[in-house]
Every structure is written in C-alpha cells, then in structure tokens.
Computed example of a mutant assay.
Amino acid sequence: MYVMESPPGDSISVRSVTAGFLAEHCPWVDRDAVQLVVTELTANAVRHTQGWWRLRLRAEADELCVELDDGSTRAPEVRAPDFTGGGGFGWPMVLSLAGRVEVRRRAYGKTVRAVWARS
C-alpha cells in the first residue's frame, strides 16, 4: 500500500506517484484511466473542500484500489457540464473509467474509493 498526504498547493505530483506505483504493482491496469481518476479526485478535493486530501493506492493480485479522503462530507454528484468554467466533467469521468466507485462519509469528511478488477 502507498499513502500520500496532500502536499501544500500540489495536486499534480499524484500523477507521477501513481504512474510509478502502477508500473511496479499493477502493470495490467489501464494506467491512463487510473491516473485520470486520481487527478480528478485530487483536483475535486482541492476545488470543493478545504484543500487537504489523503491518497491511498493498494494493489492486490486481482484488483487495484484507489482511495481518496477529503474534508467534505458532501458526496460528489453528477451535474450538467458548465462550458464556461464551472466544471461538471470530472465526476462522470471517474464513474465511467473505474470499474466500481463508492463514497463513504466519515466523521472528518468522506472517502471516495475507485476499484479496478484484473480481467
């Protein structure tokens, strides 16, 4: 398992960290899809919460699990895309790219879990 705490002002480094983890532990997974999901989840945490997040990557023999904690108890929701810069694109993308997505509310906020099964 790999855990990454939110670096101040930096949600971009998660792409390279995720790529390295996948190359070592999950070469079978669609790396671009996982990196995009991780990027969207961290960007949403920065944009829609107080900005902190915690990423956990866990590889098993038959699945990859990505979990992102943040400080908001509000669950992500599908909304109409706003082409003037208001967003609405990321959550539908996460739902379509991951095999399974779960949202769990916690006392401190929530955990979004995306899972990919090895086929």
Rank of each mutant, 00 (worst) to 15 (best):
S6R: 05
G9V: 06
S11R: 03
I12H: 04
V14H: 04
V14S: 12
S16V: 14
A19P: 01
F21E: 13
H25M: 15
C26L: 03
C26K: 09
P27V: 03
P27T: 02
V29C: 09
D30K: 01
A33P: 00
L36W: 02
V37Q: 06
V38R: 03
T39E: 15
E40D: 08
L41F: 06
L41H: 01
T42V: 13
A43K: 12
N44I: 03
N44C: 09
R47I: 05
R47Q: 15
R47W: 14
T49G: 11
T49R: 11
W52G: 12
W52P: 11
L55T: 04
L55M: 12
R56P: 13
R56W: 13
R56H: 10
A59N: 04
A59Y: 05
A59R: 01
D62S: 01
E63I: 00
E63G: 04
C65Y: 00
D69P: 03
D69K: 13
D70E: 10
G71H: 07
S72F: 00
T73H: 04
T73W: 00
T73P: 07
A75Q: 05
P76I: 05
D82Y: 12
T84Y: 15
G85K: 10
G86S: 15
G86W: 09
F89L: 15
F89C: 10
G90S: 14
G90T: 02
W91P: 09
W91R: 11
P92T: 02
S96D: 08
L97K: 11
